[in-house]
Simulated assay, not measured.
Amino acid sequence: MKDIRIAAAISRSGAGDVCGNFEKMTQMVRWARQAGADLICFPEMNLTGYSSASEISAVAETVPGPISQDLLRLAETEKIAVLAGMAEKDTDSDRLFITHLAALPQGGLHVYRKLHIAPPEQGTFSAGNTVPLVEFQGLKFGIQLCYDAHFPELSTLMAQKGADLILIPHASPRGTPAEKYRSWLRHLPARAFDNSLFVVACNQTGETRKGLHFPGIALALDPSGNVIAKDLSDREGMVIADLKADALDRVRNHKMRFFLPNRRPRLYEREQQDHVS
């Protein structure tokens, strides 16, 4: 990878207020660009607002559609990669997905559909079935959404596919920023350390009209699982993190700290098959 500066946004999003959410996002995109960032990642479902109730379908859109096209124009105009979330309506059925889009400044729109649907979401949303990676300015990154981060196999698969970074936007309610930070430190450093890659996570903040309260927090972890930037202020803003190629190289060139080449997937698969049978 190449050195890159990224921003992880903490933002408040009104459920159903697509226009207001997009306007706020636009201002934060400009702030990130002024800070020298080449990429900014917003929390889960920041554009449509987060809700697991079926009424979110009223603002869900297909991709491509007006939301995704506006996002792509914003990335091209401001010359920065923008990652933003929405409720997506399937073009061929009534299914809804929790989707994160990556709009690149040179054109190109990438789509990630949440793979692991949390129990409160399962009556409304369907799960995606693909694990895409995005290449941008010498960086290869994957996206996971909130509950996805609790499944270690997904991060390992992304690492095997060549990811240097995993971005994990959240809409994770309840608790204080300090409590959410302690919760994240139980599993996010492991995703970075075990797979020798950067991890950056961000959450929504504030209370929605649906009675959910999100503790505002964002953090960045290096490939050794160390926190390199954080914001626990509970206010709208962003974390700016410089991801350095040499930090990745130091781990991946160290024979005792780079674990992936020594995995034994055939053994795991055989043991799993024997257990099932």
Rank of each mutant, 00 (worst) to 15 (best):
Y50P: 04
M25P: 04
A87S: 14
P132R: 03
L260Q: 06
K161E: 15
M45C: 01
T62F: 05
F151P: 09
E121Q: 00
Q144F: 11
I6C: 06
L243G: 07
R186K: 12
S52W: 14
D246W: 08
N226D: 15
M86T: 08
G107T: 09
Q204M: 13
K180E: 12
A218T: 01
L157M: 14
N21W: 10
P66R: 10
N203P: 06
L83C: 02
A127G: 08
L71Q: 05
V251D: 06
A163Y: 03
Q34S: 13
M158D: 11
A84R: 00
G20H: 01
S93G: 04
K255C: 04
R266C: 06
P105L: 07
S52Q: 13
A245K: 10
N226E: 14
Q160K: 12
D3M: 12
A58Q: 12
E55S: 11
R113A: 00
M1S: 09
G16M: 05
N262P: 03
A178H: 03
D17G: 04
L96C: 11
L115K: 08
H213L: 02
T91I: 15
D148V: 01
Q69N: 13
S51L: 13
T99A: 07
A201R: 02
A53E: 13
L188W: 06
D242A: 14
A171E: 06
T124N: 02
D234H: 05
Q137P: 10
L101Q: 00
S68I: 02
G211V: 01
R5T: 15
Q69H: 12
A192G: 07
R250Q: 14
F141N: 09
N226A: 11
V134T: 08
K24R: 15
S13V: 10
L267N: 04
G225E: 09
L197T: 03
H275E: 15
S52M: 14
H170N: 04
P223F: 08
I40C: 00
F193Q: 11
G175T: 12
V227M: 06
L248A: 02
D3R: 04
M238E: 03
A75D: 03
P261R: 09
G175R: 05
